[in-house]
Design a protein around this nucleic acid. Sequence first.
RNA 1: GCAGGAAUGGUGGAAUGGUAGACACGAGGGACUUAAAAUCCCUUGGCCUUUACCGGCUGUGUGGGUUCGAGUCCCACUUCCUGUACCA
Length: 942
Amino acid sequence: MINFALGRRNGRRPSNFPNNSQMEYNHKEIESRWQQYWRDNGIYKTEIDPARKKFYVLDMFPYPSGAGLHVGHPLGYIASDIYSRYKRQQGFNVLHPMGYDAYGLPAEQYAIQTGQHPEKTTIDNINRYREQLDKIGFSFDWSREIKTCDPEYYKWTQWAFMQMFGHYYDTVAHKARPISELEEYFSRHGSEGATAACSKELHFTADEWNAMDWKQREDTLMNYRIAYRAEAMVNWCEALGTVLANDEVSEGVSVRGGYPVEQKVMRQWCLRVSAYAPRLLDDLERLQWSESLKETQRNWIGRSEGAEMRFPVAGSDIELEIFTTRADTVFGVTFMVLAPESKYVEMLTAPEQKAAVCDYLKEVCRKTERERQIEKKVSGVFTGSYAVNPLTGKEIPIWVSDYVLAGYGTGAIMAVPAHDSRDYAFARHFDLPVVPLIEGADVSESSFDAKEGKMINSCGPELDLNGLEVKDAIAKTKRFIAEKGIGKVKVNYRLRDAIFSRQRYWGEPFPVYYKDGVACLLPEDKLPLELPEVDCYLPTSTGEPPLGRAKGWVSEEGYPLELCTMPGFAGSSAYYLRYMDPRNDKALVGREADEYWRDVDLYVGGAEHATGHLIYSRFWNKFLYDLGLVAEAEPFKKLVNQGMIQGRSNFVYRIKDTNTFVSHGLKDQYDTTPIRVDINLVSNDVLDTERFKAWRPDYADAEFILEDGKYVCGYAVEKMSKSMFNVVNPDDIVERYGADTLRLYEMFLGPLEQSKPWDTNGIDGVNRFLKKLWGFAQKATESPAREMTAQEKKTMHKLIKKVTADIEAFSFNTSVAAFMVALNELTKQKSDSREALDIFTRLIAPFAPHIAEEFWHMLGHEGSVVDAAWPEYDENCLKEDMVKYPVSFNGKTRYTVEVAADAPREEVERIALSHEGAAKWLDGKTPRKVIVVAGRIVNVVV
RNA sequence: GCAGGAAUGGUGGAAUGGUAGACACGAGGGACUUAAAAUCCCUUGGCCUUUACCGGCUGUGUGGGUUCGAGUCCCACUUCCUGUACCA
């Protein structure tokens, strides 16, 4: 039997709950009534309850754009809402909050155009989002709402930054430690033996440290802080007037707006994310994330094991440091290459080459990142200097080329043209020698990049690699160079430190002032440092960020405050912690709340945040974890990526130079131009011609060539956007069909993680299902209570089993199908069982909460259906009486036998072989093998 | 180039190695109706056989393999999607 526990909350039934329920399914009336009821009774308010297990379900909070929500946005929210409600019905204390990622470029750009304060636009948009979200019936606890632009919230963003400023990363203990401990160490031992992650290697003694003045010490410490200021190569976007992080740039243009981006050296705030690279990589293992997402992060972190080696420069005491993963190929190094930005370039340029090198550097600087990527032309210049190969003693030329990146490794490489395709292209272009090192490798056309084969040509005075496999040769060389002190084994990461400054207005101000040019933190009690008013949101005439316009933007002592603001990811990096304890003014999250809620059990959002938010959040969380402020080392235990919902644009076909439009099926008979048409004028691909004429003045006297009396439009799947006229507003769907239909339909559309076009064509089917379910509920609630029939039990317990398993597997489309099957079966059984309706109500409550709430009260229950116990299924009810077994001989089905469902294997065999047809196929032989598979097939091999 | 994923009817999509195509849309037919809408019922992968019932063959991108049995596992290939890229 099912445990019909009553709801936990004692919400009172609304007074306008209809007594005679004999009526049509009226979604508007039902949905507004129950939404009101949820609000009035605080049904979704969550509190710490040590008696119950917690479950934290989080959506990636939205950026409230001016365009409002389209039907793609709620897809993930619906899925997470179903899971939250399901978990709650199972007795978990579910935290399911929502808020807004309120800082962003569009609001600022709108502000520049209109002069309107971005806060105003943002709040307007938030209010609009809230209205749209409320209509869909989510179980968010809105009392925990946060906005990243709220000073009460960003106080803690600023506070976290201050902690990062006040800590360094210990590379041996693998954790952040207070910077004061490092100062203490320096005063005793100097830099020698310090195990701190740094921007560049510094060497000083304790005496030197102690002799430094305040400014010198601060400059030195800046090299170690986790939040630090440094000259960094940044992605500068002229059009946006700001720098961008690596994940905000794609293919040489800005992700937002698609403007060109160039490389530029600027003094910026940075976060030492790279120090956490090993932990960010290792901890991926224990996360329940999709393999593809983990792989994306692994690639982004980009661990590579290799060696760092020093090549002495001929006739000089300078040594060139390089990084390689192919230590085995040192014998094939025929030249060296420096990145144009490398500090070695100036040191190593010979006087006779100076002009050529200068010209080359100028040319490289002129090009943007984008141009460099598009051209992919081999270019470079000889410095005039030579390095000495430490294994062969031979001199090799040193070149400069932009194919070597300053930001990776040491900004210099040893070139092995025979076994690296880039070096090969360079060598061929400048006619440098190519020495193959692997037996059988043909390097006449291209390089041999594979790490396999036997070494040749690799014997020097002290080291012989000939005959070894590549793998062994690498290991042997590494050992050799370490012993000889030529280099050391080194692990390199591709992950860069995050650039943390933005030359913009609409972001969190830094709690930083400058005293004699030295960055200092404001005292903690001055937080939050609120964003000042400015008269205009553009940079100043001297090129300073907009905050340069703010009057009185100085500290109490009169020192100037930082003019940059923080980037978009700052506010979203720890928001999941703040939801746990959103109104705490003493801490980001209080100890009690953190130890109860701990981490996010289920995080739902788009995969596009793989290399941005999801890396920064993990870093931020690990930092706070190191400080002992949060309980878990990883913030998001399980993560599900919902697919994107694309738009489905409709086209009409205008015959050239006329105002006549021809239907899709006939368009090939004419010379036509396709024109996008507002999908609101189209229903099931059929155009409403009258409304089309009214749409644009140009079309007022349009004429149509119809097929079957209809104008049929063509369609294409594209991004959902205003400019394509294909935006579907969830409000319209809710208005017409109701929130429950929208919710079920979005889930029914296909697998959650898959991208798919929005297609309204199937929505009637889902709506019909709810109407039928409504009809069944009317019938069932009018009937007296009785025991379910065996058939009804089977239908309902099959449904419980299926829906439970499907929700656990996030297979919501198949659970919706299961509801449809179950209802069809009940209809065929002419069922009017109250008990069946009761089970149905509990199961469908997460999916269609409004109609479920209605049924819940029709059935006479108290409280809200959100606290209705989740039913358990009874395996006994699922048993079939007799099962049909197709019997196959040598793989071909020959006849069918009926066997009791729970018959043992031997019994099935006996019945199958005693069938009158068996003799014919056995043909006097004994069966070699008989296969019976759980309730399925018997196959007899003769 | 590299990495991850996918390929099933007219469409969206179901199938712990065990009756392929659940469910829905669309389409066709029927009932009700003066008519339409709504609603309900039937048919619906392809081919063949049959008056009909019954039945047969074939079928999950291509080619192989493992297995009594493959949409599912293995190998090779083709196409598409997503991410990423001078990362030494």
